[in-house]
């Protein structure tokens, strides 16, 4: 996840200091991806080194405000304008579990699939409850992203189960 671009996009709206950036980021993304403050400061110093932000004046409370440079503004525009690359998927424990389960003996894979489906559905129900309470479009879209991802997992589990049954049926014939 590009913390760099998220910070730049926030700074495009107004100059902010580090802690303020962290709060704004978490607030806008419904607290879904917590940022630690150390990460914010190291990112800011890298952005400053690269000429994308300047550390300027301090506000009345002595916080150092960061603002976007012209190069930083161009970077934000380019980020919004380009597709996010599909990264190499992280090691997926569930996929690995099923792949290994297929060849394990004495294992009821259908049962494992159902247990997972039930757990993922519970998460989906939680996201749905949060979404029903959401009053901010940005929050809703973040929750929708989690919702669609959980749904994709359940659909994939359905698919695995159907494949499993088909294979079993073939073996019987």
């Amino acid at each position: 996840m590009s913390v760099k671009h998220a910070l730049l996009a926030l700074l495009e709206q107004e100059p902010m200091y580090g802690y303020q950036l962290r709060v704004a980021f978490e607030e806008r993304t419904a607290g879904t991806w917590p940022l630690n403050i150390g990460q914010v400061y190291t990112t800011l110093s890298r952005l400053e080194r690269d000429g994308l932000v300047t550390a300027g004046e301090t506000d009345s409370d002595g916080h150092q405000l960061y603002r976007l440079t012209a190069a930083g503004r161009a970077e934000v525009t380019a980020w919004f304008g380009s597709a996010v690359p599909r990264t190499q998927p992280a090691r997926d424990e569930l996929a690995i579990k099923l792949a290994l389960g297929v060849s394990a003996r004495d294992l009821d894979l259908a049962d494992i699939i159902q247990r997972q489906r039930s757990a993922t559905m519970k998460a989906l129900q939680d996201y749905n409850r949060l979404k029903r309470k959401a009053t901010d479009l940005g929050h809703e879209l973040v929750l929708d992203s989690l919702i669609f991802a959980a749904e994709a997992e359940i659909r994939w589990l359905d698919h695995c189960e159907a494949q499993l049954r088909r294979t079993a049926d073939r073996a019987v014939r």
Binding site: Q114, R115, S118, M121, L124, Q125, I147, E151, I154, R155
Partner: peptide, 27 residues
């Protein structure tokens, strides 16, 4: 058949071949 829509429910019941899957021991 849309998990996203089932998530609006308080409970989800799964049917297989005319039988309700027992969700109690799942999990």
């Amino acid at each position: 058949h849309e998990p996203r829509h089932a998530a609006w429910a308080d409970r989800v019941v799964y049917l297989r071949d005319g039988v309700v899957l027992d969700d109690e021991d799942a999990g």
